[in-house]
Design a binder for these strands. Structure first.
Lengths: 193, 193
DNA sequence: CTCAAGTCTGTACGACCGTACACACTCGTC
DNA sequence: GACGAGTGTGTACGGTCGTACAGACTTGAG
């Protein structure tokens, strides 16, 4: 408008492709052996692109994890939004814990990596905190704050065990545990939100 | 006995000091930026010692995490062994979730790092699996298998949230949730162990 | 003491990494 | 077509890393 074009990328969407490639590399190699070169190769972009779009490795990882967190939060919320009753919400929670849809092996690995890395990177730390808060907010659509907190802990902890156990989760046990917590709901104190 | 001495180290305990130093470095810097040199400096031993005692970085990390797992398992078991009744066992579980004794910031960070690294290292993967099994076995001293599994998930997941939340855990809520699960115990199926 | 056998270490090397930056390319404007 | 502002890239450099290894050191036996 003022004479010459501005800020018009030659290859739109490139940044996102790099972030997706980064998540792929992280899930396969772990943050500890993720490098610019591996990501560039995976995204099929030149090495220089990474320093062009991102301000160093820490920035790249932070944005990749932010993207992961966003994707997961959306899936999470959608799953709970689709529940029309408390009973359906309970089933949704069970699904989040047991179902392969929510926690693929890739996703679980990435979440582990994010939690670990968050302890050493301020930006990823707030991303993680935000993701946990959003989870709780989604649960709060159907449950009291106390129940939400308890279920959230369960949703975090149980797939974690599943990730390392050789046997699949016992769906009936999960269902009954969720129900026990929800049933105890009215008695669960909600000291602070 | 057969002529000359054998396998008598000049500096016994050195290996363990290196492993402790490694855990310090991991908790401070994360596996992703843990190096031989940082560990050597922290342990105040020459760089060459690390290659002398350990067969590469992966081996060093694996042994460090094995040491961590062992320490934690022992504390865990001791806490539950000291409970004389189901009520005391419940209190012990609450303590494990809320108490600062079990999950110091350093320990939580290390556990996160172990879980993340386990997905990329076979030896650490079995260490992690063993640690989870030992946790469940300790719980089984007081609870049915089903309840043990549910509580174990809670013990894993709740401190995880605590680690990133700004507010401390609501002890009353934890107590009541644990009680709800234990109370539901007889009804909790134990499909497979 | 002397002497091996075994324990340890200081140094150096090759590999790989992150990053900077000079240059090539693209495309709206004229 | 020519221009040039802004977009994107190939390469090369300094730095750090893991690791190998020649040799110094320790120690019990003779």
């Amino acid at each position: 408008m003022s004479g010459t074009r501005r800020e018009i990328p030659n290859d739109p969407g490139r940044k996102e492709r790099i972030l997706d490639a980064a998540l792929d590399v992280i899930s396969e190699c772990g943050v500890h052996s993720t490098t610019h070169r591996k990501i560039a190769a995976r995204a099929d972009v030149p090495l220089g692109s990474l320093t062009y779009y991102f301000d160093g490795m820490a920035d790249l990882l932070a944005q990749a994890f932010a993207r992961l967190s966003d994707t997961m939060s959306r899936l999470y919320r959608q799953t709970l939004l689709s529940a029309g009753s408390t009973a359906e919400a309970e089933a949704a929670v069970v699904e989040l814990i047991c179902g392969p849809a929510y926690a693929t092996e890739r996703d679980m690995t990435l979440i582990f990596e994010m939690y670990a890395y968050a302890n050493h990177n301020a930006a990823v730390s707030v991303t993680t905190r935000t993701w946990l808060e959003r989870s709780r907010d989604s649960l709060a659509l159907h449950f009291t704050p106390g129940v939400s907190r308890a279920l959230d802990a369960l949703i975090e902890g149980w797939p974690m065990h599943r990730a390392f156990a050789d046997a699949p989760l016992d769906r009936r046990l999960v269902t009954e545990t969720v129900h026990a917590i929800v049933t105890a709901g009215p008695r669960l104190s909600t000291d602070r939100a």
